[in-house]
Design a protein around this nucleic acid. Structure first.
Length: 289
DNA sequence: AGGCATGTTACAGG
DNA sequence: ACCTGTAACATGCC
């Protein structure tokens, strides 16, 4: 589900609701996530306070006392729900949260909090994971130490772009989704960035002109920021929801828009869909060169 | 029934 | 050691 903007929105929501609370109990309904949950390690956070919550790329880091860090990746379908203990109504919501949620089937882990609420990790496809580290070796984990710069980092600039792609024989869409190049962009935002940059996703990076690299950098930062402001993209549309949902999906120009008309003025083309590296790719063959 | 899905990574071959 | 492309993971929906 989540790319950088969605994870950022989840992080902010978590901070506002559970920062400084204490884990009273943890219940595991299914430990078979992408990596099996280590039951001994997860028990160690019982009694500890959630001091800080940070995001790096699409990862969430929960900082507890005793130097313990819980690293969470939401995979494709991971979600957090903040719910009251009597299981009646959600007090508030995180990304994708819905008030009439009946999907308890995919609640994989339940964290009971000292304010009588609970935090649920729900993950349909189980591509997400929850792992534990000590503060002093978190950056050594292979999950984090091969990541490229955050898109908003000043290090993500034209010179870096030029240097990274030199000698590479790949297409631009693959590079944008390469977490070693820049961290946090997935299939949706890669498609959208290339549309606004007017660059065809199939272009080999060695053919890109300076002004195109600059546009890609500019629109990457712009799109991700805008999406965060709008609460991210909520792709599924639940019928009755009191939960907060993102609205950036209403601003998609190409993602999922096969056969729709191109949104650029004076363009009569329809968006086409193709497959690049096993991922659906959408673009306007008229506007994107 | 078969294809597709917002992500990551292990592996194979060059 | 680096580069690139492919398949696999688990589950549900259209």
């Amino acid at each position: 589900m989540p790319e950088l903007p969605e994870v950022e929105v989840v992080k902010r929501s978590l901070i506002s609701k559970i920062q400084n609370l204490i884990i009273k109990e943890v219940k595991i309904n299914d430990h078979r996530l992408r990596y099996p949950i280590n039951k001994k390690e997860i028990r160690k956070i019982v009694g500890l306070k959630i001091k800080k919550i940070k995001r790096r790329s699409k990862f969430l880091l929960f900082f507890f006392n005793n130097d313990i860090i819980m690293l969470v990746h939401l995979g494709m379908t991971g979600k957090f729900f903040y719910i009251n203990k009597k299981n009646t109504k959600f007090k508030t919501s995180f990304y994708y949260d819905i008030n009439n949620k009946k999907d308890t089937k995919h609640d994989r882990v339940v964290f009971f909090l000292n304010n009588s609420q609970k935090l649920i990790y729900n993950d349909v496809r189980k591509f997400g994971f929850i792992k534990f580290y000590k503060n002093n070796n978190i950056s050594n984990t292979f999950h984090l130490n091969n990541l490229g710069p955050e898109p908003f980092d000043h290090k993500f600039n034209y010179n870096y772009f030029r240097q990274y792609i030199s000698g590479k024989n790949r297409v631009i869409k693959d590079i944008l989704m390469d977490q070693k190049f820049v961290s946090g962009i997935g299939n949706i935002y890669a498609n959208e960035v290339l549309f606004l940059s007017e660059v065809k996703p199939t272009r080999k990076v060695k053919t890109l002109k300076d002004f195109e690299l600059k546009k890609i950098i500019k629109f990457t930062k712009h799109i991700l920021k805008t999406s965060i402001k709008l609460g991210g993209s909520s792709i599924k549309d639940f019928s009755s929801s009191n939960g907060k949902k993102g609205s950036f999906q209403q601003h998609f120009n190409v993602y999922g828009k096969k056969d729709y008309f191109c949104t650029k003025k004076n363009c009569k083309n329809k968006i086409v869909k193709s497959i690049i590296s096993n991922r659906s790719t959408f673009f306007c063959s008229n506007c994107q060169k």
